[in-house]
Simulated assay, not measured.
Amino acid sequence: MSRLLAAITLVISVALTILVTVLCSVPIIIAGIIKLLLPVPAIWRSISKFADFMMYCWCEGLALLLRLNPHLKWDVEGLEGLNKKNWYLLICNHRSWADIVILCVLFRKHIPMNKYFLKQQLAWVPFIGFACWALDMPFMKRYTRGYLLRHPERRGKDIETTRKSCEKFRIHPTSIVNFVEGSRFTLDKRLETRSVFQNLLPPKAAGIAMALSVLGPQFDKILNVTLCYPENRRSPFYDMLTGKMTRIVVRVSLIPIEEELHGDYVNDKVFKRRFQGWLNELWHEKDALLDSIMQKKKAGQ
């Protein structure tokens, strides 16, 4: 693809993405304002259903935009057996802003509407921030180790945010999405965190442990999702917008929620170590899967 064509495609893609986002987020924002002014449970439930429907429309708009790229191929395995009437905890590796688009488009007709754990900074993004609040998505504020040493009273705030947000998801079937690494993968971050994984950052266990603790038996399964962009690893989101994205590989596995995954992550040190060990083992398997996908790409398969 020529640079000129890529530049034109980028402008058109950004304009259409903004248009779809504004058209779908404005009704959600208005619904959120009504929810704020009328704190009545019955009204909240109706508004939540309406907001989820508008998010579904946003996902459909994104799906249409992706279909405009004639070179894009999907390589997906593991969607069988999913149900929109179930509760799911979806955990995924995080490579790019493109991940959110892919998860929304891919799962829109298979599971309840996704609810993302979002960084606090996104709350201030025009349209998106307030719309995500109206959709009851939790905003997480990340603290550095140095900051927590200076302000120990802030320790555990994210866990409390997770608990309060998960309480809202008891009302109707929900898919809670957690990018367990807490940040997008880069080689610099891999070195900074001293990650033992080749393709992943170390997983953070507290968020999903708390979600399992709060919703407990309501979750039907854990959706373990692995995303890979074999030919577009360097800049997936930019390549998506410029029409250079060629292949999206997604592997989905359903993990039963055993009794051993329920416990007090904050106060029970034995459970905490066991849960972290389980998640680390899962991450080693995901790392090996990503290696396998990339090896196939190198072999031209």
Rank of each mutant, 00 (worst) to 15 (best):
G81C: 08
M210A: 11
F117N: 07
P202E: 04
K115E: 06
L90K: 10
D287F: 13
W44Y: 07
V22Y: 01
C24V: 06
A211R: 03
R3L: 14
R150F: 03
A42P: 02
Y265A: 03
L90P: 09
L64W: 14
I28Q: 13
V76P: 05
K298R: 15
I128V: 15
A7C: 12
R155I: 12
L215C: 04
A288L: 11
R233D: 02
D136I: 00
V250W: 10
F237G: 06
I100L: 09
F169I: 00
N224I: 02
S195N: 06
L290I: 15
R142T: 09
P138A: 04
P202H: 02
P126G: 07
F53A: 12
R170A: 13
M240L: 15
M55T: 14
L37A: 13
R184Q: 07
L149N: 12
E153G: 04
V196T: 08
P126V: 08
S165M: 11
A63E: 13
I171S: 13
H262S: 08
L90D: 10
N83D: 15
E258M: 07
I255K: 07
G32K: 04
D52Y: 07
N232G: 02
V270T: 15
R67H: 10
N267V: 01
I176C: 11
L149H: 09
G216H: 14
K115F: 05
F130E: 09
L19A: 12
W58P: 02
V101S: 02
A98R: 05
I171T: 15
A63Q: 07
Y143I: 02
L37P: 00
L37Q: 04
K272E: 12
G78C: 10
C24E: 00
L62C: 13
T21D: 07
K49M: 10
V180K: 01
